[in-house]
Amino acid sequence: LDSDTTSTATKNSKPAAKVQRSADPSKPEPYSPSRAADLYSTYADDDDQGVIGPEELEKLFGDAGISLEGSLPLLLAWLFGSTEMAKVTKAEWEKGTAGLRISSLPALSAALTDLENLLVHDKPPLKPAQTTPSSKKNTSSSDPYDRSQYFRLAHDPKKAFLEFYLFVYTLSKPPQSRNIEIETACALWSVILAPRYPMVDDIISFINEKGTYKAVTKDLWSMMLEFCQTVSPNLDDYDPEAAWPTLLDDYVSTKKSKVDGAPSNANAI
């Protein structure tokens, strides 16, 4: 597991490394609030200096070599406590960068990639590097950013992921609506759940095939994670009499009726 074979991980980290080299071949610059503020103003919306809008954010991600496709933008929103999708306010930025001691794009990229590996790809947490309490100030020199929050989260990744997962729902939900649209939900699931739970892809294709589902309630959203975490991939321990949402009942019964017809090990994931 330790060997870095996952293609997504390498894909995400490579461009970041490139940027890092072009800026400073040996080491990332140390954190400074003014540099963070400079960075902010580079990307802030021309019309509204109080916010980095979607276009600017896309540019920022591009410059930092962060993929827009994966979960990294969502993790950024979570880390910075954003309240709106694809927008970072000045206050959020200041608080976020200060907390993580980030003032450069490579540092930002590193922080997000670390979290993605931990939460979305379920990789073993990084070991704290030279954690001699005396040299606390120095940790920032060996780490690209202040990893103390990372280590706090790494202490209980499951809880951290749940927090992140529920945050994503709130973030994605239009303010006037109770639910999020099924397409949005599927896109999010494929990004944040599917890497850890391959059967989510299967559920998503079931949803698309059926085509009758419209929205995902908060309950269904949280039960989906519960389903992934507690039901085994071959669905043997799924109890249709239990309190699962009907969408999952539908999925499992369709799946099982298909499997019954086909050779038995068809869904051995």
Binding site: R178, N179, T217, K218, D219, L220, E241, A243, P245, T246, D249
Partner: peptide, 14 residues
């Protein structure tokens, strides 16, 4: 039972 479940889901939603 499935209908009851749907109603429960609706009530949770509301």
């Amino acid at each position: 039972p499935l209908d009851i479940k749907r109603r429960i889901e609706g009530l949770i939603e509301r």
